[in-house]
Design a binder for these strands. Structure first.
Lengths: 80, 80
DNA sequence: TGAAATTTACCGCTTAAGTGGTAATTATTA
DNA sequence: TAATAATTACCACTTAAGCGGTAAATTTCA
């Protein structure tokens, strides 16, 4: 099981640590409460930009990694 | 600009390094050619599970990071 | 305990993701 | 240069993401 497939559990964990209800997180992230519910229940068909709004509020970052990323950075500048 | 927002460029770079056309990548990943086209052109509204199919073919991994991840791992087992 | 907040779980609706078809334009290469 | 492959770009169609409303079940806490 990869990291990203646990994104629902990770979101729930971070949300609770932040003391936010689902409704509050949804409001802060600018998404609907159903989206938070579905995500925390393991739905992976969420849209990427929707997911990013939620991760931003929870201070969760996504990183890309592959054997070619360092070569990519030579051409396009380092990824933060 | 965060890493994930360059996902389109990263996909294009990896696809070309793999010697794949968009149609080939789409077929291998089990998605439509339009999805590859849109992604490489910066569209971030792709669904997460759709993106994951493509990243799998290109051997690109996504990692989650936050100040609380280590604590999360204590409860849920290490993220690979 | 009992009220308040939260979570779970439906529903119907709107919007757009994802699709394959087609075709014109642009590399690629024999 | 001519044939081939790939890219870009449109289209209409189907499916489902995302939404708020509602209400029941569960948890929280004064």
């Amino acid at each position: 099981m990869s990291t990203i497939e646990k994104i629902g559990e990770i979101i729930r964990f971070h949300r609770r640590k932040s003391g936010l209800s689902r409704q509050q997180l949804a409001t802060f992230a600018g998404v609907g409460k159903t989206t938070i519910f579905d995500l925390e229940n393991g739905k992976l068909s969420v849209r990427l930009n929707t997911l990013l709004k939620i991760l931003t509020i929870l201070n969760i970052r996504i990183q890309i990694d592959s054997p070619l990323v360092s070569e990519f950075n030579l051409h396009h500048g380092d990824l933060k």
